[in-house]
Amino acid sequence: MADGQHLAIRARGMVKRFGDLTAVAGIDLDVPAGMIFAILGPNGAGKTTLLRMLATLLRPDAGEAALIGRDLRADPDGVREVISMTGQFASLDEDLTGRENLVLLARLWGFRGAAARGRAVALLSAFDLAEAGGRQVKAYSGGMRRRLDIAASLIVTPGILFLDEPTTGLDPTARAGVWSLIKGLAQSGVTILLTTQYLEEADQLAGRIAVIDHGRKIAEGTSRELKAQTGSGMLHVSPLGDHDRAALVLERVVGVPAHRSAEGGDLSVPVADAARATAAISALVAEGIEVGDFRMGQPSLDEVFFALTGGPGREDRP
């Protein structure tokens, strides 16, 4: 993976401090060209800061990075030529229409007159915004805004597209739309680095995932590799009766505490093989605990996050 030649992003020892707070505390990143790479972490983990450094919006306090072979420190303008950034907050002019926003950016890139208008029209129709193109952005829904925001990053096809929490605040339908958009972009050869706090999003989209917490990378790999770190398999049990007692029984059999699902209905324990799983179920039955449902499977990323950080994945930490 890290052979240097096919890396879209190669970052070493990235550090950013804000006063006493070290937002990013030395992160290395190798993003292969053409991949969707997710940075996963809770609020305040340093995801956005890392992204903003790579997008030339923040000067790193230490570390170096090359984006498509261009040095972040020595040639920030060269970097800007090959990247596009879609920030966490819609970076659009709300008073202008969707079309005007795109024409404005196309002209800034150097398209003139009819070419700039043509670029805007092409993007609007590709992103299903042709009809809304003449309306002011302030009248757009969250999903439309997000689509326009991403379209605005594609005036010129970037080598690397940065997406900061692309689906935060969107409803499930709009989220699915943005997901398929991102997949389509990756298929057309754009390297995508996105941040997310949704484990499902990283799982769905990304070829590789870096898990970040408190400004450090605590794990990296494919979703499958990350899941493998918590054990070869997981036994998920939904006891009908006393959950606390069921958790104790499971812990006695497998030797580690059971993980409770966010809703509290499921208990999960790592098990090496089917024999071990059978033993655990038998122990529950022997204790007179009725089991509503059980299944073997890989751990969810939620559980991976729990195992890696020692805390629930979705908790907001300042």
């Binding site: 030529e81 890139w109 150097g110 398209f111 003139r112 070419a115 670029r119 092409a122 129709s125 590709a126 594609l154 005036i155 010129v156 096809t157 389509g184 972009l185 057309s188 050869g189």
Partner: peptide, 8 residues
């Protein structure tokens, strides 16, 4: 629809 567009 996502054909590559080079910068002018």
């Amino acid at each position: 629809r996502l054909a590559r567009v080079e910068r002018p």
